[in-house]
Design a binder for these strands. Sequence first.
DNA 1: CCAAAAGTGTTTTTCCTACACCCATGT
DNA 2: ACATGGGTGTAGGAAAAACACTTTTGG
Lengths: 224, 224
Amino acid sequence: MKVQDLRFAVLATDVVLFSLHDDRLWVRLITTQNTHFQGMQALPGGLIGPTETADEAAKRHIEAKTSIASAKVHFEQLYTFSTIDRDPRGRVVAVAYLGFVPWERLSEVERGSTSDARWSPLKDARGLAYDHDEIVKVALARLRSRVTYTTLLQKLLPKEFTLTELEHAYEAVLGADLDKRNFRKKILKLDILKEVPNKKSGGAFRPAQLYRFATDKVIEIEVI
Amino acid sequence: MKVQDLRFAVLATDVVLFSLHDDRLWVRLITTQNTHFQGMQALPGGLIGPTETADEAAKRHIEAKTSIASAKVHFEQLYTFSTIDRDPRGRVVAVAYLGFVPWERLSEVERGSTSDARWSPLKDARGLAYDHDEIVKVALARLRSRVTYTTLLQKLLPKEFTLTELEHAYEAVLGADLDKRNFRKKILKLDILKEVPNKKSGGAFRPAQLYRFATDKVIEIEVI
DNA sequence: CCAAAAGTGTTTTTCCTACACCCATGT
DNA sequence: ACATGGGTGTAGGAAAAACACTTTTGG
């Protein structure tokens, strides 16, 4: 076997970029240029270059394909998909990533749609090109799992938030209702939140205390 | 950019193959052939071929490099390492796997050492070639984490085992002592074990009840 | 003063923890 | 009969679950 023959595969990355808005999970989708999947929706992604890591490629393609500043996005490696015929153009091995961005950090243009990219409610994100339905399925399972034993949700929330907003975030991701009083007792006892001086007066009702996470790092916690 | 330039990387797989024996974790190591790491120990692994998935390559190399039948091994994808200079020979992206094999299922030759391959206590597995120290570190963290919320340990135990053996397995992996009575109550309440009719009479003491896992599948459980 | 979400406490039940002795067997 | 690991119960404390009313604000 010649060295050239060893380099048979193209390396790519695909990103499942999540945001949380309107008590629902959203995913950023693009319109694929691949003629085999004419006009279909797909996950943003692209090739990994000779001088960059998979992480760097994921960040680069998020910027290029979805017009969202990658500095706002928290990335985690998800899984590597290496099925032989997953791309009809040839052998492409994809290192898939999870991305998380707080809706509140997005600019008007980043929230918007173009003919090339848009936010879609997660539950409508089906019928995607390639094996991207499968990737989204794995992504959601990983997200749900990690949310129960880490502080990953902070990457989907603004810096400051109310306990009700945090509870709704858990409910949206887990697809389950939580008891308000028990949730508050539990989350405060974990000692991962800091009260901030300000309150959020959102309308014709009592203003809510704002909190932030004590650290920017995603850490392991007791199970929610 | 020409198509040939896109195929710059060699794809490889490395396997952290664990076994449990003598109340300790062991890892299968090989002697690397790479001249840059002359005579050093490394994880078993090798190139991914044009007509196989990463999973298939991991299985193939475990057979070829460590003389252990891959049918006995439970594989899980660990992480993909894509640092640019991780292999001095050129760009190699490695899809790393965890492997688990019950010591009791190994044949005499599979348990043994050759000049090419051997079992090493996990805590002695340092100073490995490439970035394999790092891969082992990630592997142990993943193993410890998964053991607490899944039935993964079944892949390191024989089909039938006593509760004491199961407890010792948890203690070896987690590096912590557990209370015998509380452990038994907890694990039995989870309802994942089946009593089998036989007992294990190991010597000059009361024979122990044998159990097996109710299912071969690794499932999620409450935290141990 | 009304609508809307914020915020709070108690009781019951379940689970966790700590801890020590008798049992069945082989030699 | 003794040495060895197998096997069991209980009490006290902590955490989980279930559950409803008062507070604060804007309109």
